[in-house]
Amino acid sequence: MSRVLSVSQAINEALTIAMETDPDVILLGEDVAGGGTRSGDDVEEAGGVLGTTKGLVTKFGPDRVLDTPISEMGLIGTAVGAAATGLRPVAELMFIDFLGTCLDPLLNQAAKLRYMFGGKVRVPLTVRTVTGAGMQAAAQHSQSLYWMTAGIPGLKTVIPSNAADAKGLLLAAIRDDDPVIFCEPKRILFQAGEVPEGDYEVPIGEAAVVREGSDVSLIGMGATVATALEAAELLAAEGKSAEVLDLRSLAPLDEDAILATLEKTGTVVVVDESTPRCGIASDVAALCVDRGFDFLNAPVKRVTAPHAPVPYNKALEDAYIPSVARVIEAVRECGI
């Protein structure tokens, strides 16, 4: 059985299941409870700045749902320490832009403890974080920095494109014994979709073909999967068949799935909301050239944001985010 839930509600459900099934799972972050445990007056908990964790402090209590100060370095570092010593924390980094305030615990601690200690420790940490543009939140609240975490050995990075995957990927992330960065793209957070009931996981490291096709492969992640699907629909109207691959996991990257769709269509367009340098789109393109050269019928095209900060003005922000029109243009440049 499934019901229609928003991505945000699906995440809340995954957190509930994870906490019910494992007493070591705790939540910590800024406003994750949000005043909800103050007794005796007419207040209710905020459940996070976007309401994603609403109700959890009531259900699981303030020992397992911890409001932290606005101390990202401290809270992420504490979560790393707790993860290395027996808990299975889910820390919330409100926006991925705030990575700047807590990079060391992720870069030099979480990612490396196991390796540096000769495999004698596990760091089962999940960091949930909101990513991407689309709300006119401007340069410091709109970035898609998953390329940074995906590039750090020892960290895993996943990004769902829909509510069902959000639930399953989050459960898999929490139960994974390595640190996982779980991205929540702003543009899909309140989009609704069918979500299966009960406890299930979407395996980390597996991409999904979300639309079958034979002429061109459109590869997206997070919110750009919908962009790719829309482009595929327009191409279909012209009699062109586009396959859409949802990466879901950025690290590890499902190289087999990327090469399989390339082999099938011979043409790849990657749609990535982050900036173009050193990014996922470049990684996928390099993989196609390096290991899929014989399958290629056309250049690998990357449709990304420009090498610029995210602007505030709505028209500029719209122009910043990869559009359906730019995807179609890239497909045309491939001669299709």
């Binding site: 832009d97 305030t101 006119q136 401007a138 340069a139 410091q140 609240h141 602007p311 505030y312 003005n313």
Partner: peptide, 23 residues
């Protein structure tokens, strides 16, 4: 028009900007 509420600044007036990052 590129900064918005959290990045209003005017260096001529000695205003080093609002800021989107706490602290």
């Amino acid at each position: 028009g590129k900064g918005g509420s959290m990045h209003i600044a005017d260096v001529q007036q000695g205003m080093l900007g609002a800021n989107g990052i706490v602290g």
